[in-house]
Design a binder for these strands. Structure first.
Lengths: 263, 263
DNA sequence: GATCATAGTCGTCTTCCTGACGATAAGCAC
DNA sequence: GTGCTTATCGTCAGGAAGACGACTATGATC
């Protein structure tokens, strides 16, 4: 092991990139911004930016998230008391570190290490935030990743691939979200503060790209202690019979987990 | 969003730190090295070092692992073809990225962002490697984390805490390993190329700190397709009736998962 | 207002998996 | 051989999940 020599280390730029996921119109969507300058000028990219000289990584991610969406972050890692973390109230989003990408060639200009973060947010009215008008939008992840969708239909019009290695980052973020809603109550982060069982089920269906049996799903989520607590009201905003409204309970881990159909 | 300005970014040092876990004498142990210079001089720390100017993060972690232990890394992310990844043969170890730690105050000398990696290795003869004699050792994680052990007995002699935020990194790595052997075949990474069901069970027991029923465990692991393939031989190295030898099968995901007892 | 479409909610049945645990097998130490 | 240790097979009860029938309560349509 070489001795620690603080005076001679290669300098890196450190950025945070954000995979912001939401469910819009039954589809899992992510926030992308259009790049205004080279490299990859005009291409879509994940939002992100430099970590400031005296800023923690999670704080930088929360700042970027707020700048892009106006959302406040609920970072479970930064809250010392897990019980005090408010569950998706107001306009907050779940935020967690995803992974770090540091291929020497990932940015042609210089050596950039990007600490990607994953944010899960309820459906938001308009994506814009930073300043430019149409420079930000919600894009279905299925079209960005260019795979077959759930129906087996091939995606016809392939959009230009994301800048840098952002397609890989997005794929990792989507996979993290898909697996994490299996064994945690994180799917509620995609829902407004009050939601019905059917709305929660449509979140799972959109994220996993499958159809779930409404009866078994209802039995599962209402039968898991601490997952959902009834808020008293009902709603009919989905049409059909009025549904009971719930909010997220204190439980964060689902045991046994929600099983994702393999087919 | 501020425009990307490559000429004005705060410089960071980027390091990799390693949580190398193994099972020795029925205990989960991690590799620690003694610091030879300030800060935290004389204290134990996780092995690690600077990422070189033209080196990928995973490559840096693999290099550090090799320097410290002589192990070659099997990084699932760096292998394009997952089927070609050899399962813990020879003296290789599983290596994966864990998380990135970048608190501005985590190193008093300068701004250091550390990309922690998790390595799982079979029991190794001697820990030493880099150069110094007793500067590296395997330490039971239970003593380093200073918690109650599985028997409810308090840990009497508390060693000095790890340098920097390495206790936190170690805790995260241990938690990752504990949860990942639930739903993947990763526990075989702690085993030699050929092993018995009992040896694999003792891995689970050491990592989780619980006792498992040998009969149910045997039924579970031998009944999961692709988890274990018989290698033909038998061994009696554990005493008692000779046990069938297995090697890790091609399956990487366990479905349904192995359940960790909650008590 | 009757009918229909849509969603929500409650039950039933079968199958699979697990935890608890008895029983047998095959080595080694004495 | 006796005893001890570990491995391996089997049985049984309980719980969870998939498949699916039945009923309820709204709005939309005729």
């Amino acid at each position: 092991m070489s001795p620690y020599d603080p005076s001679a280390f290669p300098p890196f730029a450190v950025t945070v990139d954000l995979v912001v996921l939401t469910v819009r119109r039954h589809a899992l969507c992510t926030l992308v911004v259009r790049r205004g300058e080279p490299p990859f000028q005009g291409r879509w990219a994940l939002p992100g930016g430099f970590v400031r000289a005296d800023e923690d990584l999670g704080a930088a991610a929360a700042r970027e998230l707020s700048e892009e969406t106006g959302l406040a972050a609920h970072d479970p890692a930064s809250a010392p008391d897990p019980a005090s973390a408010p569950p998706a109230d107001g306009n907050g989003a779940h935020l967690e570190q995803l992974a770090t990408y540091g291929d020497p060639a990932r940015d042609p200009r210089m050596r950039v290490v990007s600490v990607a973060h994953l944010a899960l947010a309820p459906d938001l009215p308009a994506p814009r935030a930073g300043g430019d008008a149409d420079s930000a939008r919600w894009a279905p992840v299925e079209s960005l990743l260019g795979r077959l969708d759930g129906d087996g239909r091939e995606d016809g019009e392939q959009p230009a691939p994301l800048a840098f290695d952002h397609a890989r980052i997005l794929a990792d973020g989507v996979e993290r979200a898909r697996s994490k809603i299996e064994y945690s109550s994180l799917a509620t982060a995609f829902c407004p503060p009050e939601f019905t069982v059917g709305e929660l089920r449509r979140v799972y269906e959109a994220v996993w790209g499958v159809a779930l049996d409404p009866r078994n799903f209802h039995r599962k989520v209402t039968g898991t202690p601490g997952f959902l607590v009834p808020s008293g009201g009902t709603t009919t905003r989905q049409g059909g019979r009025p549904a009971q409204l719930f909010r997220a309970g204190g439980a964060t881990l689902l045991n046994p987990p929600m099983l994702r159909p393999e087919a």
